[in-house]
Design a protein around this nucleic acid. Structure first.
Length: 881
DNA sequence: CGTTTTGCTA
């Protein structure tokens, strides 16, 4: 824009009477170009008002040389420049094509390239490039720079870099330009590479270079290299450049070096609004919203100018700590400052409402927004997902796509979370397709969310496929996969991946809380101990989730004493800690200790929930504490107003049935306000077996078979009841029934861990290298049992007679094999710990008792129901199994 | 000649 004096002077000089016709003149492109043309005296005044003579002589002089050589040409160059000046790319291109053979001035090409860059017209730019090549014009110096600039501006970074590499370049500008472009597309590696190359070539770097390279190291979290840049920057005297220090502050915050960022900020002599905003958003992103707000307050006290970005960050900080009061104040402030009409402000407000659980408020903001962007939609979707309204989240995502809005990385991760939590595999797979289409898989957060979605939907194959295709994995990726395997009952896969992980990354608190349940489910005590060591080495033992998982692992691996020692050491025991310990005592048969722990918990001021009541009720039933169980059932309902669910009822039926109150249990089921399921009838069926009540068993079995026709466990149970009553005819009938249905018995299997390795045995296993020794040992033991008056209980037979014979011939059941293997391979005196996938068989139970006495070996056997500690011929279950 | 940077909500 011309200043007032210049305008008047200009106009007067060229057209003394032109004042009135000025508007008309401006409409005329051609004329306007003339006014600005380097040859007109006007140009000298308008563009370079100060130095009349030098500008005139240099420019005109240059062109005058051309004029003398080729009179025609001068006009073409001038004309092209004219069109460039007014921004008429089309005309300039036409002229360029027409006159390319005339040996046009390099400047003309430069001007057109500049215009192509401004218009972001890659097509035209390429055409200019080919004209240049066609006419054998040497690409270098200014022309080279312009070509690179054009390509980069038009988004063709690859071609830009190609031209750049061909030309001599010590100009820092182009280096910075390319570096920034690489950084913009997330290619930090190449950006940083250029920085190192600059240093090698001795190119003088400037503040732009430092800002860019710091951004790269911030993104990749490379503290070491970033600090080197920091030192070099100070050496070159950029320590007082506000933009560079701003970048440095952001870098330190992104690397988690908060104190360094704060220190830099404190020592800054000149701070601008960006310095302040960087601090606020730095704290916000580090999860320290309060400190961000504190920076904002300081800003207000010092009277620093606040801008939209400040308000947006502070409001987001308020949202994160759910500070409604401060949010309102800032809202009012924003309205006064006129920020409230901005989209980014509305987006933050919307997110604030949704984070505070006010989805109606969020919807209100959302619907009243004149313009919405991807952030608005994503915030809404994430809000619905956070509130557990997964269906709404998915619906809104659909609506958004219908509107033609392209989900970005944030949207995709939010919707995947909604799909994961609602188990909507189909929707999740649709999102996966979109992700592939937009090649978003390279994004870590997206891949992690995808894996989580597949894992939560139970599809570990697809999760594994995403995982294996990831080029870079972070701790979240590993944790998601390990946790996925763990939760999908693939404990061995979880453990194997954990081993692999340790070669690549350092486990964190989440990793160990994911892997410990896998050890627990396998009862892999040695692996669990290893992980305990890993926890100690990595300083993770102050995390309450880790401690709870650790206690749970020791409980489920049968090491109750260690579990209790650790439990006592937990300084802040939460409801979960207490529940784990109560359940632990329960499954090990220490009902009274469980009750004592429950009381302690209440004394500690922790209120039990429905889960802790399940634990205590099971503890009572495992120890046959009928009256205490009833008491807790009543306390739960009358004192804590917790409505019993199916699981609570199952506990009670179990309790009654084990205590021999079979008809009472039957009446109890009949009086339930909930529809009983197979587990509940199954518990009673179990009781029928213990107390040999064939008549009731048949009645109960009808219910069970109706509710769970596919579960072989119950057919086996009934068959056992028949065979124990020597009703062989009925056993046969049942066997035929099962055969007709094509059902297969869930094979019993047991395993034992020796020196960290798990050995698995299935019923009648003879393939094992030590099978012969095991057989001999068992035969020997059987003999000793008989001498002591134990009779072999042929009653513990199974449905299939052939199988039974085979098992007897080989001395049988998987738990016997595993126990024998333990005796043969573990040093004397060491407890034998065996785990079985089904309930322990009665004969094996007897044999274990005998082994514990005859061989003086302690045995801890975990079956699908509880623990059995065998010692001196007794079992901790005292018959309650 | 000038062209490029730093912060901003999910």
């Amino acid at each position: 824009m011309l200043s007032m004096s210049e305008t008047s002077l200009t106009s007067l000089w060229v057209y003394p009477f032109a004042y009135n016709s000025r508007e008309k003149q401006l409409k005329d492109d051609h004329f306007q170009a003339l006014v600005k043309n380097p040859f007109s005296r006007t140009h000298i005044f308008s563009a370079r008002g100060t130095d009349f003579s030098s500008s005139f002589t240099s420019k005109a002089g240059h062109l005058l040389v051309n004029r003398s050589r080729n009179n025609q040409n001068i006009d073409y160059n001038v004309e092209i420049l004219k069109f460039c000046e007014v921004g008429n790319l089309q005309k300039a291109m036409e002229l360029l094509f027409q006159r390319e053979k005339m040996g046009l001035d390099v400047r003309s090409y430069c001007s057109v390239l500049q215009l192509c860059a401004e218009h972001k017209s890659l097509d035209d730019g390429r055409k200019v490039h080919s004209i240049i090549n066609r006419n054998g014009i040497e690409i270098g110096g200014v022309l080279g720079s312009k070509l690179v600039f054009m390509y980069v501006s038009c988004g063709d970074l690859i071609e830009g870099k190609r031209v750049f590499d061909k030309i001599e370049n010590e100009k820092v500008f182009l280096w910075n330009l390319l570096m920034n472009e690489y950084a913009k597309i997330g290619n930090f590696k190449d950006s940083v590479h250029m920085y190192y190359r600059m240093l090698e070539l001795g190119i003088e770097v400037n503040s732009y270079t430092f800002s860019c390279v710091l951004k790269c190291f911030a993104a990749s979290g490379n503290v070491v290299e970033g600090e080197k840049v920091h030192a070099y920057m100070l050496k070159l005297g950029f320590g007082s450049y506000t933009t560079v220090v701003n970048s440095l502050i952001t870098f330190y915050f992104k690397c988690g070096r908060i104190e360094s960022g704060q220190k830099l900020f404190d020592e800054m002599r000149v701070r601008d609004v960006i310095s302040w905003n960087s601090m606020i958003s730095g704290y916000l992103a580090s999860g320290l919203a309060e400190r961000g707000i504190k920076v904002f307050t300081e800003m207000l006290i010092l009277g620093v100018r606040v801008d939209l970005a400040t308000v947006v960050s502070v409001l987001a900080a308020c949202a994160n700590i759910r500070n409604i009061w401060l949010s309102r104040a800032i809202h009012v402030y924003a309205v006064k400052a006129g920020f409230d009409m901005k989209m980014s402000f509305s987006n933050t407000l919307l997110d604030l409402y949704s984070k505070c659980g006010d989805m109606d408020g969020a919807v209100c903001v959302f619907e009243n927004m004149e313009e919405k962007n991807i952030v608005s939609w994503t915030s809404m979707i994430a809000g619905y997902a956070r509130e557990g309204l997964f269906h709404e989240a998915i619906e809104l995502y659909r609506e958004m796509r219908k509107k033609g809005i392209n989900p970005d990385v944030f949207t995709v991760t939010s919707i995947l979370h909604a799909c994961a939590c609602s188990g909507s595999l189909e929707n999740g797979m649709e999102v996966h397709e979109y992700i592939i289409e937009k090649s978003m898989v390279s994004n870590l957060a997206v891949s992690n969310a995808l894996m989580d979605m597949y894992a939560k939907c139970g599809n570990m194959e697809n999760a594994e496929s995403v995982f294996s295709q990831m080029t870079a994995k972070d701790i979240v990726s590993w944790n998601t996969m390990i946790g996925g395997y763990s939760k999908n009952c693939l404990a061995n896969e979880a453990l194997n991946l954990f081993t692999t992980m340790q070669l690549h990354a350092r486990p964190d608190d989440v990793t160990v809380t994911c892997i410990l349940p896998a050890c627990a489910s396998l009862a892999a005590l040695d692996r669990g101990r290893e992980i305990h060591g890993c926890i100690l080495r990595n300083g993770l033992c102050s995390d309450r989730f880790v401690l709870n998982a650790l206690v749970d692992m020791y409980v489920k691996c049968g090491a109750l004493v260690i579990a209790k020692l650790l439990f006592d050491k937990i300084a802040l025991k939460d409801l979960v800690s207490w529940t784990i310990m109560i359940a632990g005592y329960g499954m090990h048969g220490f009902g009274n200790e469980a009750i004592a722990t429950f009381k302690e918990m209440r004394q500690a001021g922790i209120e039990p929930d429905e889960v802790s009541f399940i634990s205590i009720l099971y503890a009572c039933s495992h120890s046959g504490l009928l009256n205490e169980g009833w008491k807790f059932f009543n306390i739960m309902r009358n004192e804590f107003y917790i409505e019993p669910n199916l699981e609570h009822y199952a506990c009670m039926v179990d309790l009654l049935a084990r205590a021999g109150r079979l008809s009472m249990a039957y009446k109890f089921i009949k009086s339930m306000p909930l529809e009983p399921d197979a587990t509940i009838w199954g518990a009673l069926l179990c009781g029928c077996r213990i107390y040999h009540d064939v008549n009731l068993a048949e009645k109960v079995a009808e219910h069970v078979f109706e509710l769970a026709p596919e579960n072989t466990r119950y057919y086996v149970l009934l068959a056992n009841i028949y065979s124990e009553a020597e009703k062989w005819e009925e056993v046969k009938k049942l066997r035929e029934k099962i055969g007709k249905r094509g059902l297969k018995k869930n094979p019993g299997c047991s395993w034992i861990e020796i020196k960290g390795k798990v050995y698995i045995f299935v019923s009648g296993d003879s393939a094992h290298p030590q099978a012969k020794n095991i057989r001999l040992l068992l035969r020997d033991l059987r003999k000793k049992m008989k001498e002591q008056g134990h009779s072999s209980k042929q009653k513990y037979a199974l449905i299939n007679a052939d199988e039974m014979e085979k098992e007897l011939a080989l001395c049988g059941h998987s738990e016997k094999l595993a126990m024998a293997f333990g005796i043969l391979n573990l040093p004397a005196g060491q407890t034998i710990r065996v785990t079985k996938n089904l309930r322990v068989c009665g004969d094996c139970h007897e044999m274990a008792k005998s082994i514990s006495k005859v061989l003086e070996r302690d045995i801890v056997l975990r079956d699908s129901n509880r623990f059995h500690h065998f010692k001196d011929g007794y079992c901790s279950c005292r018959g309650y199994w």
